[in-house]
């Protein structure tokens, strides 16, 4: 298979944290702006314009933050698993830096999805917590995130921590579908499916367009946060290089 030349060039450039640091700097304001506009539009539409759900009333409006958070929680873990593979196979330093930066952000989105789900459950199911299949899988995902964060903090040497976290992220990624299917199967064995929240046959466009907007907005803000965080990790890890030291001196001479 022949890989197109520009992709190969991009791949080699990604091997340089400095290139990453300098290239992504101008992206940040655009990502932030895009995220704020998309999420703002989605949230306003969802909160004020979308019609109330015929069963759940206005509490369904939580969907516009709950579902994006849950989607991002899963996407972020996939990103980390991919970074783990890239780190172990190609030894790309940048992958480890993204792995470090993304973990707490993914954990925060997972916790957000769980908490908003619980708050949504109170008026809808009449209880804060139900052992619903999605809820349970999300809780286990949170534990997987906490494990990766804990492992990184426990291992003092960055290189050892990076590769160990990469292995753990890959093991987790392989296990996520297994966990998800086993939990799904177990809980459907036990409960009648009265607790299904999001399985509506069809949502009118006035409900799903804002959802799409806020999911896209969440993605933009997620990339914004991860890029920012990765850039700081780049500086910390590369602090012995001349370019970082020059950068620090430049920043220090600014008022």
């Amino acid at each position: 298979m022949k890989v197109p030349a520009p992709l190969v060039r991009l791949w080699h450039r990604l091997g340089s944290p400095r290139w990453f640091f300098e290239t992504t700097a101008p992206w940040l304001p655009w990502l932030l702006g895009l995220g704020v506009v998309l999420l703002g539009a989605g949230a306003f539409w969802g909160l004020a314009l979308a019609p109330a759900d015929y069963l759940q009333g206005n509490s369904f409006r939580i969907i516009y933050v709950h579902v994006p958070a849950a989607i991002l929680a899963q996407s972020c873990y996939m990103l980390m698993g991919t970074c783990g593979v890239v780190l172990l196979v190609w030894r790309m330093k940048l992958a480890d830096m993204v792995l470090e930066a993304a973990a707490p952000i993914g954990a925060s989105f997972t916790a957000l999805a769980l908490i908003t789900g619980a708050v949504w459950g109170k008026p809808t199911w009449g209880t804060w917590w139900a052992w619903d299949a999605r809820v349970t899988s999300m809780l286990i995902l949170l534990f997987l995130y906490l494990g990766i964060i804990g492992l990184r903090q426990a291992l003092a040497r960055p290189e050892a921590a990076g590769r160990a976290c990469a292995i753990l992220a890959i093991v987790g990624l392989v296990n996520i579908p297994i966990i998800k299917y086993s939990v799904d199967w177990w809980l459907t064995l036990h409960q009648p499916s009265t607790f299904k929240l999001t399985e509506k046959p069809a949502m009118p466009p006035s409900m799903w367009i804002p959802l799409l907007l806020s999911v896209l907005g969440f993605y933009a803000l997620f990339v914004w946060s991860v890029l920012q965080s990765t850039r700081v990790v780049v500086l910390e890890r590369e602090r012995r290089t001349a370019w970082v030291q020059n950068f620090v001196t430049e920043q220090g001479s600014k008022p």
Binding site: G57, R61, L112
Partner: peptide, 23 residues
């Protein structure tokens, strides 16, 4: 929000906090 205000607004507020913190 027809009685659901506290639930809805607390979720949106929390989301804002998490996004701000991450940023």
């Amino acid at each position: 929000m027809g009685g659901h205000g506290p639930y809805v607004w607390s979720c949106y507020g929390l989301t804002l906090l998490v996004l701000l913190f991450n940023g």
